[in-house]
Structure formats: C-alpha cells, structure tokens
Write a protein that binds this DNA or RNA. Structure first.
Length: 454
RNA sequence: GGCGCGGUAGCCAAGUGGUAAGGCCGAGCUCUGCAAAAGCUCUAUCGGCGGUUCGAUUCCGCCCCGCGCCUCCA
C-alpha cells in the first residue's frame, strides 16, 4: 500500500513516490529560525514531518534524501544578536544546539542535510542574479532587490490568493503597504536581497547590488536546488508558510530554473492554546522545557502531538499530556510482555492508517485496539516497526521526579510499619504522603514513589 | 473584504450512506492487609433547520458558533 498524502495544490490526497529515475525520494522540510527556543507548536510540525520521514524510510529504504534548513539570518536573528551584543553566529549556534537537543528528545530523526542560509549566500546571490537577468527581479534605489510578482503568471496558485485581493480591503494591507511603499514597485513584490541598514550591524554580505543580506524566501529555493536539484518530490511546512513563503519559493525557483519546483506540497495545521494560535508574537507558548519542568516527558508530548490529525488544528492542553503519559505506560507494559516472541497478529491497519494521509489518531486507535486484545500472537519485531513509524521510543525514560528526603524517610517508615504489620501506622503514613503529593506503590520486594496524579 | 478549516460522549479524538474506533478521566465488580497494578463491565445518535435517499452523523442548501491565513511565524 503506497503512502498517500494530502497535496496542497490540488487539495486531494496523492501518492508519494520518487519522480526521478534514480529512485531517490527528494524531501524538503522548512526548518526553524534559530533565535530562541522552538515552541511546541513548532514541534508539532517537526514531529509530523518526522513521521513522514519515517514512513518514507520504510517505503523507500536507503533512497530517501531529507533536507531541512536552518534560517540563521533574518530580522529576528539579527535583532537578537544586536540586542545581546553578540556575533550572529554565536546566537544562532546556541539556538541551533537547543533545537537539536529538543528534536532528539522528541525522537525526531535528523535530516540528511541541514543547510544554513549563511552557508549558502553565494547560491542565493547566483539565483537572484539569474532572476535579474531574466527580468523577474529589479533593484530598488537603496540596493535592495525585489521579485516582480507580475512577471510570474502562476503566482497565487498554491494559496489561491490573487495579488489584487491582497491589496483590497483591510487595514492590515494598508499597514504593510506603508512599510515598504517607498522601495517596491508593487506591494505584492517581495525582497530577494535586502540592502544593508545600520541596525543590521556587521551582518552583511557582498553582492552585485551592494552589501546586504538575502531575503527570507530565497534561501529555501537556493538550498533546495543545491541539495536536491531543481525539482523535488515533496516540500512541507506549517500552514502559515503556505502564503507567502511557499508561494514565493515557487515563483523564484520556477522563474529561475524553468522547471517545476515541487511535485507535492504538504502543510500541517497549527497547534492552538486556549483556542488561539500558539506563537511567539502572542506569547502564549510552551517550550519543551516548560513541559519538562511540569514533570512531563518529551515522549508524552510527541504522543500528544500525534493524537490529532496533522491537518486539523489541535487545541493543546496539559490534560492531553496526562493522557499521553498513561497511554505510553500501557504501551511500555505491552511491549515488555512481548519479549522476543514472534506471531502473526495483524498490525497492518496501524501502518495503513499512517499511509492514508498520515492519520496518526487513526493509527493510535488501531494500535490500542490491538493492545486491548492482549499480547498473544503479536510479533515483537512487527510491533517495533510500528513504534518506529510513529517514532515512539518506549525505552525513553518515563518522567522522574526528585524525591525529597523527608518524603523518602516517611516512605521508609511506612514500609517498615507494613513489614511489622502495623496497619494503622502504615495507613496513616500513606495518607500523610498523599497529602504531601506523593503516592507510594508497593511491590512484593519494595516500593516506588510517584507524584500524585492530578 | 478575500482564501481556508473545524463543530462527534466529562476531556481529547478517528470514522462511515445502513444506527459511531481509540485514548484519558469517572463508576461498578474481581483480585489484594490498605493503596497501586492487573482483569472484566459501563458511559454519545455525531452544532441547528431544511432537502436528496428505503435509510444521513456521513451528500446538498441555509443558519449559528469557533479557529487559521492574507504581516515575522511550524
């Protein structure tokens, strides 16, 4: 059964398969801007893409090339560096490292290539140069270079937004018009190269049009071309990237290369908090560290993120993390019961749900239907394959809390009381522990302390 | 204003033209000094109103409500 995935251009599911004769599947996923810790809304997108990557690995073993960029030069990274009076590279290194650590904790496979914008200035300049020569771009008086949207007939095909409509109506568009009106020929035009400004500090590069830095969109076009070629099989990102980012990428790449940029576009939906989009600008965000501080494991977050369909908005709650933690516990126990046994129970519905437009909640449903039937007949290796596809690492540590010494002491006393069959004292201590937020789980040979579930 | 998405049990969440997976929580029972774990059982007619149909939660229309994009953004 092939992998079918919703395609944003046609809005219909389509099979994923390599288009080129070498059989390599070319996959580009828009990565983070490294100027601050990524929030869990960002990670929804990366976790979803990780499942795509894993399905592709299973489908086309050894023939997947996965590229995910790091945006390490833009307004935000530069501002952060200037504010902190540090070199740009220092700042982006710090947040790149943090991003990698969080991805690892969430069990996301690293992409095969992780190019940076600053590492591909020449490639970007070269592309802009071609666009200038072909008449798709123009240099403004200040040395900035803009893409001329009117030169590309297909502009707006992905987002189905015509340039005229962008100008119509709202106060918002007036605002953006005012911001750039002095340099652009048309409000819809977007920057390919931004002329150096004083607030950019030392962060500028030479170009045929003067010192400056690349616009945001061109990096993906250039890096995708360099590492995957002119035409790729799949390009993904969050819905917010659909317009203008991906629309602009298509315009640049296709005008420059004269070839289809991407066969397949896929966009995952947003994570909401309190019914609103989680975003850095709204400030309603959680980072992975925030959740870890509340005692949740990264794997629980991964599970919770997979519990909703990737193309539906998901309203994130701490409650979903409790549910995830419990579900993972069940899965760990089930896996342990499997040992190394082989069997012929049918696990296919789980993977089939994933291959059917990434129906992760459907897959989890099918998984628990299986789990509820018990471990008999379930093949351990097949089960592990399913866990691989979902990226659920059942060996990852369950959340552990520091046990205060007074709690440990009380627990020890209770255990001794229990061994002495002093039930009244044992029960009193259990109650006392509970009041202090700890539950004591007895085993035959000892006990475990856990924070009380709430 | 333009483009788009969604409204399914207490919470989360799949799905289907023929009376609705799964997770969490909760309740009851079994087991067990107690608690936990484990096992069993129980909990919805799918936003509203019309239409099509033998039959709609699933298709169509209208309405109500929520959200996203159109500006940096996963």
């Amino acid at each position: 059964m092939p992998i079918r995935l919703h395609e944003s251009l046609t809005r219909t599911p389509r099979e994923l398969k390599p288009a080129q004769p070498d059989g390599v599947f070319r996959f580009y996923n828009c990565g983070p801007t490294v100027y601050a810790p990524a929030h869990i809304g960002n990670f929804r997108s990366f976790v979803v893409n990780d499942v795509i990557r894993r399905l592709l690995d299973l489908e086309f073993p050894g023939k997947v090339k996965h590229v995910r960029n790091l945006t390490d030069v833009d307004d935000k990274t530069i501002k952060r560096a200037q504010d902190e009076q540090r070199p740009l590279a220092d700042v982006t290194k710090q947040w790149t490292d943090k991003f990698h650590a969080d991805c690892a904790a969430l069990n996301c496979l690293p992409p095969h290539v992780e190019p940076t914008a600053t590492g591909h200035i020449r490639e970007q300049v070269d592309m802009i140069d071609v666009l200038m020569k072909k008449g798709n771009a123009y240099r403004a008086a200040d040395g900035s270079v803009y893409f001329k949207v009117s030169s590309f007939d297909d502009y707006g095909k992905l987002s189905r937004v015509k340039e005229r409509e962008l100008q119509a109506g709202t106060a918002l568009s007036h605002k953006s018009q005012a911001a750039d009106a002095d340099e652009k020929e048309d409000v819809s035009d977007f920057a390919l190269w931004k002329a150096h400004k004083t607030e950019d500090g030392a962060n500028s590069w030479d170009s045929p049009w003067g010192r400056g830095r690349p616009g945001w969109h061109i990096e993906c076009s250039a890096m995708s071309k360099k590492h995957l070629g002119e035409t790729i099989d799949l390009h993904t990102g969050g819905v917010d990237l659909l317009f203008p980012h991906h629309e602009n990428e298509i315009a640049q790449s296709q005008c420059c290369n004269g070839a289809t940029f991407a066969h397949h576009w896929y966009h995952s939906e947003h994570l909401l908090v309190d019914g609103r989009k989680m975003s850095k600008s709204l400030g309603n965000l959680y980072t992975l560290d925030d959740l870890k501080a509340k005692g949740f494991s990264p794997m629980a977050l991964r599970y919770a993120l997979l519990a909703s369909h990737p193309r539906k908005q998901q309203n994130f709650t701490l409650d979903s993390l409790h549910a995830a933690e419990s579900a993972l516990k069940t899965l760990r126990a089930f896996r342990a019961a499997l040992g190394t046994q082989s069997g012929d129970a049918v696990l296919e519905p789980i993977l089939a749900a994933l291959r059917d437009d990434l129906n992760t909640p459907g897959a989890l449903g099918a998984l628990f239907t299986l789990v509820n039937r018990g471990p008999a007949g379930v093949d351990a290796a097949a089960f592990d394959r399913v866990m691989f596809a979902l990226g659920l690492d059942l060996n990852a540590a369950a959340p552990k809390a520091e046990i205060p010494s007074d709690i440990a002491d009380r627990a020890k006393q209770r255990w001794e009381a229990k061994l002495g069959k002093d039930w009244a004292k044992a029960d009193a201590l259990r109650k006392d522990l509970a009041a202090r937020g700890w539950s004591m789980l007895d085993r035959k040979d000892g006990y475990t302390l856990e924070p009380v579930k709430r």
